[in-house]
Amino acid sequence: MVTLTHYLALSAILFGIGAVGFLVRRNALIVFMCVELMLNAAGLAFVAASRYRGLLEGQLTVFFVLTVAAAEVAVGLALMVAIFRTKKTTNVDELSSLRG
């Protein structure tokens, strides 16, 4: 029997993977994909909870999340392109001139 707990556990695992990915990857694009993974983990939780409770709000929320994520991609990619033009790299570790 697959319960809500299982779904939530899965989404938590996904969230965790995304978070760890954020920390270990250097390519800005991949780092960003990890964030997307985290967002989608949350989406999964919403859908599962929505289904479990028989409410529509959760499913609706996922639309919001997806839309926001899409907008985020638009902003993020634009930024990365701009940086790549200036710095010729997308390695986040090389972007550390501001510190202290």
Binding site: L4, L8, F22, A28, A42, A45, F46, S50, G58
Partner: peptide
């Protein structure tokens, strides 16, 4: 990057409360 990272926590937190 960090803002997106943080907002993921927000969304997940809302999801948990909703759940």
């Amino acid at each position: 990057l960090l803002g997106a990272f943080a907002s993921a926590f927000l969304v997940f937190g809302i999801a948990l409360i909703f759940a």
